[in-house]
């Protein structure tokens, strides 16, 4: 009986061994978080770079001082790559929201929303600092 079933048992054992190896692949393939984090980091990086670019000539701080929310929205719209939704909120140093209008180009269609924080110092004769929170998402 044992000798008759030995071949079948070995096949079952071989199948089990293959299953063990494939399960190892399956478990290790479930580590996509690093890639997602990297993609979110990329989007955060884009957001920060855009804010730095807008602030390089002092226009970001000037528009915040002058409460030019429309200009800020248009600037972000132009500076960010196509297909990216944004929502910017500006706070004063006490973290009170200063923008009285929504600075956004629409809702977020993506579940992957990246967040960027930036301190903007305006170049006015009197120092005024703002904390900017910029949320970005890929439009679907």
């Amino acid at each position: 009986m044992r000798n008759e079933n030995a071949g079948q048992i070995r096949i079952i054992e071989a199948v089990f061994a293959v299953f063990v190896i494939f399960s190892a692949f399956a478990v290790t393939a479930n580590l996509p978080a690093a890639q997602n984090t990297s993609r979110t980091n990329d989007l955060s990086s884009v957001g920060l770079q855009v804010l730095v670019k807008l602030d390089s000539d002092g226009s970001l701080g000037r528009n915040l001082d002058q409460e030019n929310w429309t200009v800020l929205r248009e600037s972000l719209n132009l500076a960010l790559p196509a297909g990216i939704s944004f929502n910017m909120t500006a706070y004063d140093e006490q973290m009170h929201e200063v923008n009285t209008a929504v600075i956004s180009n629409g809702g977020f269609g993506s579940q992957e929303v990246s967040f960027t924080e930036y301190i903007c110092a305006s170049r006015g004769l009197t120092l005024k600092c703002y904390v900017i929170h910029l949320c970005l998402a890929v439009t679907q």
């Binding site: 920060l48 804010l51 730095v52 701080g61 110092a121 120092l127």
Partner: peptide, 13 residues
């Protein structure tokens, strides 16, 4: 880099 930019603005102001 962003902090450097903001620092520059503080100095310019």
């Amino acid at each position: 880099l962003s902090l450097k930019q903001s620092t520059r603005n503080v100095m310019i102001g």
